[in-house]
């Protein structure tokens, strides 16, 4: 058996991987490590289930300002943030 890239939308499996894996630079020039998730807030809220967000501590890591901004940015949030 040989690996393929065109079987059954193989790329769809990879997309999840591109969102979650790959080098994460723990540098303070990166937007941003300590306070805000590395990918956009709406994107995380839209794509990640609450279980995932809680599991990775994404909710607990957010400071108050970030949460307020995230909520303000989303008039109709697809996932509740708190």
């Amino acid at each position: 058996m040989e690996p393929r890239r065109d079987e059954d939308d193989a790329i769809v499996d990879l997309l999840d991987c591109i969102l979650r894996d790959g080098v994460i630079l723990q540098a303070d020039v990166i937007i941003s490590v300590a306070e805000v998730p590395l990918v956009g807030l709406q994107l995380r809220a839209a794509l990640a289930g609450m279980d995932t967000m809680t599991r990775y501590g994404l909710l607990t890591d957010w400071d108050e300002e970030t949460r307020t901004r995230a909520i303000a940015d989303e008039r109709a949030p697809p996932t509740r943030l708190e």
Binding site: L19, V29, I31, L38, V39
Partner: peptide, 8 residues
């Protein structure tokens, strides 16, 4: 490869 949305 870098993770999507790695922005400096």
């Amino acid at each position: 490869p870098f993770r999507f949305d790695t922005v400096v």
